[in-house]
Each structure stands twice: as structure tokens, then as C-alpha cells.
Design a protein around this nucleic acid. Sequence first.
DNA 1: TTTACAATTTTGTTGCAACAAAAATATCCG
DNA 2: CGGATATTTTTGTTGCAACAAAATTGTAAA
Lengths: 232, 232
Amino acid sequence: MGVHVSELANIDRAAESLGDAAYREMKERIIRGVYRPGHKLTVRAVAQDLDVSTTPARDAINRLASEAALVYAGPKTVVVPVLDAKALQEITLIRLALEGLAAQQAAEHVVPEDVEALKILQKKINSALDAGLYADALWHNKEFHFAIYRLAQLPHLVTMIETLWLRIGPSLHNLYPEFAKERFGVHNHEVAMEALEDRDGASVRAAMENDIRDGYRRLKRACREKAILPVQ
Amino acid sequence: MGVHVSELANIDRAAESLGDAAYREMKERIIRGVYRPGHKLTVRAVAQDLDVSTTPARDAINRLASEAALVYAGPKTVVVPVLDAKALQEITLIRLALEGLAAQQAAEHVVPEDVEALKILQKKINSALDAGLYADALWHNKEFHFAIYRLAQLPHLVTMIETLWLRIGPSLHNLYPEFAKERFGVHNHEVAMEALEDRDGASVRAAMENDIRDGYRRLKRACREKAILPVQ
DNA sequence: TTTACAATTTTGTTGCAACAAAAATATCCG
DNA sequence: CGGATATTTTTGTTGCAACAAAATTGTAAA
């Protein structure tokens, strides 16, 4: 078995197995929109992409499929999921419950420094929108949300929310710039930060729930106007 | 042509692979308490138990670990999770959010035949308790809960709830018969069924939330009184 | 041209051996 | 005997070849 150059990037991850690294890399690519909805993934193609053998590639694909970040489209075909209205609605319902809970609990542990960090993240979102870098804006938006959710100090909950974002993430990239142009969530984010400063859990929850609902409406509208066609 | 996520339930997947079968079998054993909390699982031991090679055994272990149904207790050791107070509290919080949502939505789709089926399940719970078959009572209790949750017709949600039950399941078996003796949930279940007959979502949710909270209290108390020591 | 069917290629799965890291055991020296 | 060190065993990981099933391509007859 060969030693790979990827060790240059992360020295301290020597303990991580190739399968775990492949999983992380694939997850990142899915979230960042490298693989578009409908894209078919094969063990050997992924292995070649990541420069590993079939075993770690298969490990990564299976793990992502078991989290529903990838879905089975046939007996021997795994694809990046294509969101339809029904799935979008269900995932939004679950997101409201879980992210609402995380947002509310965040108020229990927040300290002023956390809000400062959030303000910096919000600035990054705004800058990315100004520059038209919509993929970056989406990324920073994700960072903003999870910075809040992590404050709740409920690791299981954060992990579960991540799997939900993984399921809708790919479809977001088919929708910008139309989606991002409307300055998603700026107001809701401001309200959430103010509520965090007041340690007002109910208001934090309300703000984040509004953000999720606003995103849902835009996404639903965009899905109607512009059919999301799978690639390949 | 891409496949939409909600269609996945309708697509019957081809013959089950050995890895999937191993996963199912291991999951069943964990839920039924064959492997107790703290039990260490090795690839080769599982392979021998299930009479398959190491590859499907490793697939099953990795998948269960990625769902947190098994946890890493060291660099090279996967064990059945031992519940501590903090984890129990967090999972209960998430259960309240998710199972509450499922219970409420169940009222939107319930038909009288569903309630009849629930009454039969409740009878099975009572019979098992009468006979002192506590493991059976736990099993039927699980069936009762999920029969309600499935009514919500939200497959993603049901899957997520299942992973939560998988995390606390093993520890339940360390607690009965003390745990089961108190006739868990009989009253709450009755209330839930009446609310379902009235299609009163808020009341179904309240009943199931009460059931979860009652279980949580008993579990917490039992954990305090009787330390759950890992086996081996 | 179209359709049915055979040949070929692609692809996921499975078992297994080699390897390295960790754990367990044995050994030796004070 | 005690503790440190060397040795052996256990164990997860990785790469790979063989296999069967599915998808694709090629081919020929109508």
C-alpha cells in the first residue's frame, strides 16, 4: 500500500484511516456542489478521483448512502439525491424541530465572544454576496448556522442536523445565483444574534425557524420555476 | 435519468447483499440485547458469529458505528454504547422533538383501522408484562411507538427516530425487570390512542411526550441506583 | 430502420492475504 | 518480586483478484 501526499495537508490526522479521509472529502465535495444532484457515483471512479483503492472508496460511498447523503437509484447505482417537493417539505419539518431546538439551547451557553464570532461570519456572508461568490456565501451561511448550533453543546444533535444539510445541500448549488441574490437570511441572522446577546432562547429559535422557512419558500419556488434536472 | 428521493421507498432494491444482511442482524441483536452495553466487537469475531467473511462484517460494524449505534472506545475498539446521564439527557431532548413531531403528524393521516391495530399492540404489551416476559414487552412497546410514527408518512423522520432508539436500546435491557415492572406507558398509550381517534394532533404529541419523559425519569433513576457496568 | 438477442464491458460484492498499529504476553535484569 | 523491555498475538485497514449481476454495445434478422 502506498503512502500518499495528502499527509502534507493534515499532519495531525495520521491516525485517520483512508476510509475516513475519503468520507470527509466526499462529504465536502457534496456540500460544495462538486457532485451535482443526479450524478452517478461508482466505486472505481471515486477511488480514482481520490487516489485510493476501491476499499476506502466503497467505505465512503456506503457510509454516505447510509446517511442518505447519497441514495440508491437502482440495484447497482448510487447517485447524489435530487430533491423533490415532498422530500424538501419533510426535511424542512425535521430541520425546524432540530435546528429550532439547537437554537433555543444555544442561548443557555452563549458568551459575548460567541456573538462576536458570529458577526464576523455574517460579514463574510455579506462580502461573498457583494462579490457574487455565491458558493462561498452558501458555505459561510452554513458556518453561521452551525456556529450557533454548536453552542447548544449537544453533539448528537449537531451531527443529526449535519446529515439533514447534506441531503439538501447539493440542490442549493443548482439554484444560485437566483437563490443567493435575494440576500438570504440577513435580517433573520441579525435578529438571532441580538436574541443571543439577550440570552433569549425562544427568540433565537423563532429567528432561526424564520430563516429556515424563508429558505424553504425560496427553494420551493425555485424548484417550480426551474426544474432541477439531474446531470448525466 | 435521476431518481427523486421520495420515489426511493417505492423502488424495491435488488437481492440484499451480505453486508446489508449482517447490518440487519447486528441491529436486531443490539436492540434485543444480545450484545450488552460495553461489549467489544471485533471484525473477525462478528464475521465468525454471522458466518461471513470479514468484509461484510466490517461493513456492518462501520455502518452501525456511523449511526452511533456502536461507538469507538479507543483507536481500534468498537463497543456497544454505555449510556451515561449526559447522553441520555441529550437523546431524550432530541426524542421529544422528533417523536413529538411524528406523533402530531400521525393525527393527520390516522384512520380507525390504525387505532384498532394499536389496541392489539397494547394488548400484547400487557400480556407480555403479565407473563413477566420483559424483553417481549420492550419489543412490543417499540412496535407501538413506531406504528404511530409511521402514520405520519415521513420516512426520513422515522429512520432518524430509529437510530435514536438504537442508541438507548441496549441499556434498557440492563434495567428490566425493575424497569418494566411499573407498567410503562400504559396510561400514556391509552391517552394517545384516544387522541388519535379524535385526530387531535396536539394531544397525541402531549401523550407521547409524557411517555418519553416518564421513561426518561425511570431510566435516570435506575441508572443512579444500579450502575450499568460494561460487560467484559 | 427497428427489434430482438448475443457478446462485451462495467460495476458492486466478497473473500483473503499482507501490513501496521495496538494489545497482550513473555522475558530479563535490578 | 517488580518493573521495564522485548516478543508474540490480536486486530483494523488496505489493496486486489475473482465473481455475478447489471448495463452497454454490437449484430443480425425481419
